[in-house]
Nucleic acid binder design. Sequence first.
DNA 1: CGTAGATACTTTGATGTCCAAGTAGTTGGA
DNA 2: TCCAACTACTTGGACATCAAAGTATCTACG
Lengths: 164, 164
Amino acid sequence: MALDFDPIEEAARNWATRGWGGTDVMRAATAITRAHQILHGRIDAALAPLDLNFSRFEVLALLSFTRAGELPMGKIGDRLQVHAASVTNTIQRLEALGFVDRIRHEDDGRTVLARLLPAGRTAAQSGAEALASIDYGLDGLEPEDRDRVTEALAGFRAANGDFA
Amino acid sequence: MALDFDPIEEAARNWATRGWGGTDVMRAATAITRAHQILHGRIDAALAPLDLNFSRFEVLALLSFTRAGELPMGKIGDRLQVHAASVTNTIQRLEALGFVDRIRHEDDGRTVLARLLPAGRTAAQSGAEALASIDYGLDGLEPEDRDRVTEALAGFRAANGDFA
DNA sequence: CGTAGATACTTTGATGTCCAAGTAGTTGGA
DNA sequence: TCCAACTACTTGGACATCAAAGTATCTACG
C-alpha cells in the first residue's frame, strides 16, 4: 500500500500553494505523527505474543525498576504521563494476566499499590528482549539520526512541561 | 505535574543497568512517542472550537486539495494511512456536521465519494489558521530542529513502506 | 452468459484513552 | 473535635482505532 511519493512533501506543496503558512512545522508535525504510527504498530506487534502492548509493557518495566517492585497508581500515571483512568484500566488487564496484583497502602487508605508478580517480572524481561530484537521499532532509522531525533525532541518536550 | 527530571533519561539509565540493550533506540522511540502525545493534545485543543479533531481536519484538508473537492473513501484511507472503518466513521461525523456529503460514483456502484461542502471548505481554512497560530503544536521546537526532525524521520518512513 | 473471486464500503465487537462524576479516606483550621 | 476541602482511585460515558465479518458491486474467465 506504499505510495510512490512522499505524502508529506505533497501536502507541504499544497499547503504552501494555499498560502496556509507554517509549512515547516506542518511537515515536522506530520513526520512525527507518521513515525509514531509506524513505531506503535511495530512495537505492539512484537509484544502481542506476550499478551502485552506498549502501555502494559511500560508499566511492567517501570515497576521492575523500583526497589520494592510496587508503586501507587497515581505515581504510575505521573511517570508515564497517562490519565488515572487509563492506569486503572491497564492495571486491571495486567492483574487478569497474573502479572501484577493490587494491595492497599499501609499508611494511606486511599492509595492502591500495583505490585509486580514473578510472572510480570519475567514478562517485562521478555518484552525488553522482544523490543531489542526489533530495534525498538526503529529499524530503518540511521544510528546518527537516532540521537539527533532524541536531542531535538528533548528541547521540545522540556519546553512543553514534560519535565523541568 | 511536570517532573523535575527527564523520565526518558531516567528510563535509559535503568534500561542500561538491567543490560536490556538497545538503549539508544529506546530513547529515540520514547521521545517520538512523548512528542506525539504533546503534539496531538495541542492540535486537538486548537481544533476543538471548530468541531474538528486532527483526523477530521486531515480529511477536510485533503479534500480541499483536490480539483473536484471529492475523493473515494478508499483513497482517503490510503493517503492518510488509516483503516477503512476509521474513514467511514470520520466521514459520518463530518457529514453530521454538514462539512461533507456522500455521493455514489458514476461508473462504479461500489465506490462512495466524500464531497467537500462549502461549510467544510471554510472549516478547513479556519483549521489551517488555527494550527498555524499555534505553530502546528510545535511551539518550542527550534526552527533548525524542525527540518532536522523531518529529514531524519523521512528516511525512517521510507524504509518502512510509507512511500517509495 | 454465468459465476467465482476480487474490490469497496459498512457494521459489529474488542481495545484503549480521556473527561466528568462518584466513592472513600485524609488533613487542616476553626 | 469536627467538618470542609483535598487527594486517590474507580466508574460510566463519549470517541477513535482496528480486525473481522457482512453486503453490494464489478470483473475475468470458461
